[in-house]
Design a protein around this nucleic acid. Structure first.
Length: 809
DNA sequence: AGCCCCGGTGAAGTC
DNA sequence: CACCGGGGCT
């Protein structure tokens, strides 16, 4: 019949053809996992299974899209579209919209991102009169998130003696109350946070057996990719759904489990066999990606970990170059040396710049590489960082959309009620918020029934409020009847956002204006894309079920079911992963890729530079408290090395800036763990591992770790299954930089006298602001001040005697 | 109401 | 060093 299976090696082929019953595929790095998954699904379909009965959970939506594309080539694109494929969050958000009414939620519930969630927590802390220095919103949110991912409800949390004791110990005795209030507030707002999407799916399946049966019957074949990175909540969902047919296939690599910080539990994959005794396991051990050197070096590193499946990863590829180690004296020098190394390889090997990646442990490390690459005119692209959707102007516009879709979305309301300025000040907002909290309703409900509440707002302000609510209502009325682009465009203009930005002629203002245009363009694209069958189904269900009485202001209602609406757009973008957000048209651009190692998972590059290999940075100082944390760092290092196809280069610096101070760094222990036959060490000794400093540091860290606390969340939960013991660290991160190692900042003497010769019209380069032209000079050197129009950073006034400027022309 | 300046504090990774 | 929030000034 089909010959696609012949493209697989024997193990891959068996894994793809064993479609019935529980299957686990342990897929080493570069072992052709995606190919197996693709062919497996195609094979299931060719055996006659309806695509609507297949659920495939992927790590990013992009991965889902690409896999659908590949499957489509085998079984036909029309059929492939019918597969339910996407991330856990996006798939179950869809299901929750179908079933929302059962949980008391509206089907157009808002999904709160992390910023929204923190905003809610801040309000609650204010209301409960708690100090946000003690109850740090990010820590509180982490704690709540961990609880939810372990299926601990707010009520269970608040009444659990263990969590109570734990929170008292960390000086946050009311954390349970915060969690309760947080859930209540979000519910009133018709909002779910990311963790709620999974948590509430579990509630749904627990409390509504008919719903569980419905989806169990629907999803006859279930596949889960990156299973090593699932958390308890996800584990239970999968287990429940697969309970009827048991055609469950999980794919993963325990050696690449790197997301425990967001609740991922490597035990899910290590213990999978316990849940399904008749499990068939396939190990994909042949690496098709990397050289023998890279495979050997990586294997030596990962072998040090205790907690893992035994694997014998091998490759038939050539031996390849040794791993090169670059030592630098400072972080800036590291940037220069790495950039130079890329530059050199680019020319000597005729490599494209897109063949290179710089991988780092933390986003903050990107700076020195950016600067160095820019100096050598090497194009680069940074993945992650502040995304488009995080920008202020975009969030403002989206908040208008969100509020128009769901009036009870308090976080959006707070953001835009006085933007652009319309005379509704902080005092008024505080009064509204107070009334909302007192009556347990959303802020909108207070605004919309202002006279029913004794809020103490004067008639002038009341008028402004009513103008605001009327405006939002007209937006809402439009959404079901006009496509997303028309609505968004109308809202952006009618709200005054566009006008506000248009009048701002500073370079920042211009760029904000352009960003809004870009957002609108994106929405235009969205409108022009066809819906997937699932989206069609969902659209119908929600459109027909809305209790809302359609206001016939615009086109005929029957037309609206075919339109792609603004609320659909919002649903789509909220759950995009960082990878999903990357622009397609830049994919082929010839640029060096820069990203965190986490973000690099699943990617591959011929030449990989792994940078910042220093103790306390990689491994991170936060990971030195336990074996399991250190093992996760090691897995992260393993992931980094195995991204490389031809050559891996590792670099470290002996000093580095941190919080404005220079600190000394030691080479990472991971360097020593590489198989030494695979490594090209620098001439001088790498490090003196047993200096007094080293000992003093470890003594210090040992003494300090004893306050770290943990609680066991394993016993309760929702009562489906026994949870794995869940550790939540609540101790603040320990600084492990010994006093002896600190050094006063030594500002390199800069000769700025040359700046005295600068004139209006001179073009200069500033190390931070980039290239700019001097438009005015005031005063006489050394007291002179130059006004410089920078190309990318806007206008700045700089004192010439201090400004570090290089004359360009 | 908005702007600016100051000081305190803080960077791991993310749906 | 860089960002954010608070407070004070216009």
């Amino acid at each position: 019949m089909s010959d696609y299976l012949n493209e697989l090696n024997p193990v891959q082929r068996m894994a793809a053809e064993t479609t019935e019953g529980p299957v686990m595929i342990i897929a080493g790095a570069g072992s052709g996992k995606t190919r197996v998954l693709t062919y497996r699904i195609a094979h299931i379909m060719e055996k006659g299974v309806d695509a609507f009965n297949i659920l495939s959970l992927t790590f990013t939506n992009k991965a889902a899209r690409e896999m659908k594309e590949r499957i489509g080539k085998i079984v036909g694109h029309k059929e492939a579209k019918n597969i339910w494929m996407g991330t856990f969050h996006s798939i179950f958000a869809k299901i929750l919209r179908f079933e929302a009414d059962k949980l008391g939620y509206p089907s157009n519930f808002t999904i709160y991102d992390t910023d929204d969630s923190k905003g809610v927590i801040k309000d609650i802390l204010k209301q409960l009169n708690l100090d946000d220095k003690v109850y740090k919103p990010s820590l509180v949110l982490n704690r709540i998130s961990s609880a939810k991912n372990s299926l601990i409800s707010a009520a269970q949390y608040a009444n659990n003696p263990i969590t109570q004791a734990e929170d008292r110990a960390s000086n946050k005795p009311l954390l349970g109350q915060v969690y309760l209030a947080y859930q209540k507030r979000n519910f009133k707002s018709g909002a779910m946070d990311f963790d709620d999407l999974l948590f509430n799916t579990n509630i749904l399946m627990r409390d509504f057996p008919e719903v569980l049966i419905k989806y169990q019957s629907k999803f006859k074949y279930i596949l889960v990719d990156e299973y090593q990175d699932t958390n308890f909540s996800q584990y239970v969902i999968v287990k429940q759904l697969a309970a009827r047919f048991q055609n469950i296939c999980v794919v993963g690599d325990d050696a690449q489990s790197i997301y425990s910080f967001r609740g991922a539990n490597i035990q899910n994959i290590l213990n999978f066999e316990k849940d399904y005794p008749d499990l068939k396991t396939f190990k994909l051990e042949q690496n098709y990606r990397s050289t023998q050197t890279i495979v050997k070096a990586a294997s030596a590193v990962i072998a040090i970990n205790k907690d893992q499946f035994k694997k014998n990863i091998f490759t038939d590829n050539e031996e390849g170059e040794k791993i090169k180690i670059i030592k630098s004296n400072t972080d800036n020098e590291e940037g220069q040396k790495v950039a130079a190394s890329i530059y050199e390889t680019h020319y000597t090997q005729q490599a494209h710049y897109k063949d290179f990646a710089i991988l780092y442990r933390t986003n903050a490390q990107s700076r020195s590489f950016e600067e160095a690459l820019r100096k050598l005119n090497i194009p680069y692209k940074i993945y992650g960082g502040v995304s488009f959707y995080q920008r202020k102007e975009i969030k403002d516009a989206l908040s208008y959309f969100r509020l128009s879709i769901n009036h009870n979305d308090d976080e959006s309301l707070k953001r835009i009620i006085n933007y652009p300025t319309r005379g509704i000040g902080q005092t008024t907002i505080d009064k509204i918020m107070l009334a909302a909290m007192e009556h347990d309703i959303s802020m909108w409900q207070v605004l919309d029934n202002l006279k029913d509440f004794n809020v103490g707002i004067n008639s002038g302000t009341a008028l402004k409020i009513s103008e605001f609510t009327t405006m939002i209502k007209t937006f809402s009325a439009m959404i079901p009847y006009k496509d997303a682009f028309e609505c968004a465009n109308h809202i952006a203009v009618a709200s005054g956002v566009v006008k506000d930005l248009y009048h701002d002629k500073t370079p920042e203002g211009v760029s904000r204006y352009e960003n809004i245009q870009e957002l609108l363009n994106g929405i235009k694209d969205f409108v022009e894309q066809e819906r997937t069958p699932q989206e069609e189904e969902l659209k119908d269900a929600i459109f027909n079920s809305t209790e809302a009485n359609p206001v016939e202001l615009f086109d005929a209602p029957e037309q609206s079911a075919t339109l792609k609406t603004l609320d659909e757009f919002m649903q789509e973008i909220t759950l995009l992963t960082d990878v999903d957000k990357e622009k397609e048209d830049e994919k082929d651009a010839d640029r060096v890729s820069m990203m965190t190692i986490h973000a690099s998972k699943g990617l591959e590059f011929p030449y990989v530079h792994i940078v910042g290999l220093e103790e306390n940075l990689f491994p991170s100082q936060m990971a030195l408290n336990s074996r399991s944390e250190l093992e996760e760092e090691r897995r992260l290092f393993y992931v980094a090395i195995t991204r490389a196809e031809k050559k891996a280069t590792i670099s470290y610096a002996t000093t580095r800036y941190r919080f404005g101070n220079i600190i000394y760094c030691e080479p990472s222990r991971f360097i020593d763990e590489l198989d030494e036959n695979c490594v090209d060490f620098p001439q001088e000794p790498v490090a003196n591992k047993f200096s007094d400093d080293t000992f003093s540091k470890y003594r210090k860290s040992f003494n300090e770790t004893s306050t770290t606390s943990s609680i066991n969340f394993g016993e309760k939960g929702l009562g489906f299954n026994k949870a794995e013991p869940k550790q939540i660290n609540f101790a603040p991160p320990k600084k492990l930089i010994p006093l002896a190692k600190r050094m006063a900042e030594t500002n390199a003497p800069t000769d700025n006298r040359a700046n005295a010769d600068l004139r209006v019209g001179s073009v200069v380069e500033h190390e931070k602001f980039g290239i700019g032209e001097i438009t005015a000079i005031e005063g006489v050197y050394p007291e002179s001040k130059a006004c410089i129009q920078f190309r990318n950073s806007g206008e700045k006034n700089l004192l010439l005697k201090y400004a570090k400027l290089k004359v360009v022309m």
